[in-house]
Amino acid sequence: MSFQPVKFYQTGTFTVGNRLLPDNERSVQSTVRRTNSLNSGHRACQGCGEALGARYAIDAAMEVTNGQLIAANATGCLEVFSTPYPETSWQIPWVHSLFGNTAAVATGIAAALRVKGRSETRVVAQGGDGGTTDIGFGCLSGMFERNDDVLYICYDNGGYMNTGVQRSSATPPAARTATTAAVGPTPGNPFGQGKDLPAIAMAHNIPYVATATVSELRDLEAKVRRAMEFRGARYLHILVPCPLGWGHDSSLTIRMARLAHESGIFPVFEAENGEVTGVSKIRRQVPVEEYLKPQKRYAHLFAPRPREDVIRRIQEAADRNIRRYRLLEEA
């Protein structure tokens, strides 16, 4: 891991800041010098995980690049809530073109910077899971394959939330969406094969691939920092809970991300050149029910009759993650 928890401080380093840490060990988000790349006044829902994840990631990237950063953004919540005419929340050079072409737009920007000899300016591309795992997948794979000098950040909230919560290829099994209704004998999203984009990214052997959640800020920032140490294609997949689409209380956004990690549902790791180099261990393991229960999109698993069979399958998937990525501290 590029992020080493500091032991024996009052709060460890799990909080955003820590007044006991020296300045250079503090998180970007704890400082008043953070850029607030995504400014106040944006129109994201209350408790939006994506707004949070975007500010975390982009502020960190701004810090690392000394403010020399350009962002390309896919169509989606992040774009819509941040830039409705006549106001934008972005404080950095930012461009939105289309839903499915963000990686390619970023490639173009990177090419322009290279040809102009402005290598100090770095490029990020960002989009939601739909813009990444579905419609933008072709462009993303092309960008990976060519190893274009772009950090692509996927804010994964498991569905097309902007259009009213429809299913994407990142929607987890059994989750209710507007197009996978919680009706019939197998309510919610069918158990498919999944589309593990971080693994697909790793299969391109690009220099750096990592996953993160909004519940572990320090880890997330460390990964952005690490990503920026490489040239070439890099991929960061951030789990960002969506109170609207997941149907949890707006105050639980970070908690849901934490439970996704602590249950093994969402493995947090990083990989360099196609090899896993570090995982974020589970600190206090929880059964998947604890993650599923506060979310209305899984309400049909608990009532009118408990669907232990479905929950067991979800638990099995989490356990597989735990085994595959060795998410538990070995005794």
Partner: peptide, 23 residues
């Protein structure tokens, strides 16, 4: 001393400052 949880009293951990989606 650092094991103290500072129950009920802000110890300036910056969490609120960091986790607010609206800055």
């Amino acid at each position: 001393a650092r094991r103290c949880l500072s129950c009920g009293n802000c110890f300036e951990c910056d969490n609120c400052y960091g986790v607010c989606p609206d800055n």
